[in-house]
Amino acid sequence: MTSIPAPASRQQPPSTLRRISTFFFKRPNLSLLVMLALPLLWLGVVYIGSLSSLLIQSFFYLDGFSGVVIREFSLTTYQSLFTQANMDIVVRTVVMAAFVTVTCAVLAFPIAYYMARYASYRIKGLLYLAVLLPLWSSYLVRVYTWKIILAQEGIITWFFKLLGLNGLLEGILGLPVIGGSSLSFSLLGMFMVFVYIWLPYMILPINTALERVPKSLIDASSDLGAKPGYTFRKVIFPLAFPGVVAGSIFTFSLTLGDYIIPGVIGNSSFFIGQAVFAQQGTAGNIPLAAAFTVVPIVIMGIYLSIAKRLGAFDAL
């Protein structure tokens, strides 16, 4: 018997792929779950999980005799964290991070401003390259190179001597706290290296923020009679401020955690990162190392809440 097949049977049966697609289309919640499961697991287990196990570690304590960690809840470790010497380390690190951040912002803003508002297409590309280029070379190589640049026999001292200004350099190095017997042995030298290393992380966010300031607003401001300086203070800077804060989060937190630069340059006074490294490595005092790690977390928490109060995230 021959008959015209029904339209439905003329169609190919739906492919497996199509069936899967339909299955998920009908269940939007399930498809969301499948999409987010892996990233959420990553965030939950790798990030939050390791962070909380770190927090838990900080409530254990070290047995003085065998050096074995006693896994019982105790505040002993926090007691030993709040000693004068450890607080010195915290203050030293925070002050250094603050100075580095402010200096980076002051140096980066004009560069970013020029890149965003005045540079031609060509120059802008070159400037981007100049900012990013150092990031392509090894961090360690750059730090060790600075050790040689800042050394007593290094190029900076040589240059000062050439100009007959070595008295000036010696005068600066003779200052208390920031001085030392040579630039590479001084906190001043360490500060210079920190600023050099983290500057790109400040320039790029500020540049992005400045590029997003609409030209029409600036025109409107001048149409309404504002002088350029006033426009800058009242229009451009407030709109670019979130970029400065974003950059400062990078420079501040990176300086807080770094342990390589203070290990190579400076007068050997400890910074938080080194204290963590020494406590977990040298002393095997993992609870104290964990407690030390909580310090930057708390400081960054305070820092971010201040930034929020300053309105840094309003434009987000």
Partner: peptide, 13 residues
């Protein structure tokens, strides 16, 4: 030993 470490860090600081 662990006290050697904390003391030495303090001295360097």
């Amino acid at each position: 030993y662990y006290e050697w470490l904390t003391s030495y860090i303090a001295v360097i600081g």
